[in-house]
């Protein structure tokens, strides 16, 4: 049950609250470049979601099996050359960035070949985007986030398992798709608008991205609210929450100053 709630919150956070594009700014290049048509944007989003899940699987496996100190594979291999204590503590995390980028590149390569051979229909819809994805920061960012929850975690119980890692990656990809599809929908309508010449193209896209980011900021805090409701920390906290019930709306609405104007964001 606790595990399920945890997974659900990771999914919600990755897809909406801390949206990859609008909160972490990863994958901005396709967000600006490939968001002219809804179909294209959707194809790109699907391709990213597909690759990001595979890359997360590969990088999680490599990190836990080879890179971290005490990983089974590296200590087994090092056991042939080094004394036992040294072999058990061999730390290869410095190689992680190189390993990740190459696992992403090879994942993209294999996915492209596989999809082209066995799913020509699918390939025609998003195949053209696959080579572009290698340099999409969103994929590497997902790998790095997973790494930060696996490497150097203080107590072993907090370490992410494969389920959490895959959830983060898959829903991060879904969040990317949501953002880029919304963007392309707006841009299709924008074709009919009279935009001042200097702002045409990337500039107006970024400004709209800013407004979308403000909208997505409204999701902030939803996860901690849900967590408090489902997993109350201590009895005293629950009773404090019940006492505060009349003021409950205050907890959700937080005020914020935008351009010096006092605004209430819900």
């Amino acid at each position: 049950m606790i595990y399920f709630i945890d997974i659900m919150l990771i999914a919600l956070t990755a897809a909406l609250i801390n949206n990859f594009v609008l909160y972490y700014f990863v994958g901005i290049c396709p967000f600006v470049g490939v968001s002219r048509k809804v179909e294209m944007a959707f194809g790109m989003g699907m391709a990213v979601t597909f690759v990001i899940s595979i890359a997360a699987f590969i990088s999680w496996s490599i990190t836990t099996m080879v890179l971290i100190p005490g990983a089974p594979l590296s200590s087994f291999v090092a056991g042939f050359f080094l004394p036992k204590e040294m072999a058990a503590n061999i730390d290869l995390t410095i190689l992680s960035y190189i390993v990740y980028i190459f696992s992403i590149a090879s994942a993209v390569q294999f996915v492209e070949m596989y999809v082209r051979k066995f799913f020509p229909m699918l390939y025609s819809s998003f195949g053209v985007f696959l080579p572009l994805i290698t340099t999409n920061c969103a994929i590497l960012f997902a790998c790095l986030t997973i790494m930060s929850h696996v490497v150097g975690v203080e107590n072993p119980k907090d370490m992410w398992d494969l389920g959490r890692a895959l959830t983060l990656a898959f829903f991060g990809g879904i969040g990317f798709t949501i953002a880029i599809v919304i963007m392309s929908g707006i841009r299709e309508e924008l074709e009919l608008c009279d935009i001042p010449e200097p702002f045409q193209g990337a500039a107006i896209t970024l400004i709209i991205g800013g407004i979308l980011a403000i909208a997505f900021m409204g999701f902030t805090g939803v996860d901690s609210g849900i967590r408090d409701l489902l997993l109350p920390e201590t009895p005293s906290q629950v009773s404090a929450m019940i006492q505060k019930q009349p003021q409950f709306s205050e907890n959700i609405i937080s005020s914020i100053e935008i351009f010096g104007i006092h605004m209430e964001i819900q």
């Binding site: 900021m217 914020i256 935008i258």
Partner: peptide
């Protein structure tokens, strides 16, 4: 203008 240091 807090919004300026936030993502938007």
């Amino acid at each position: 203008w807090v919004i300026m240091v936030l993502p938007p």
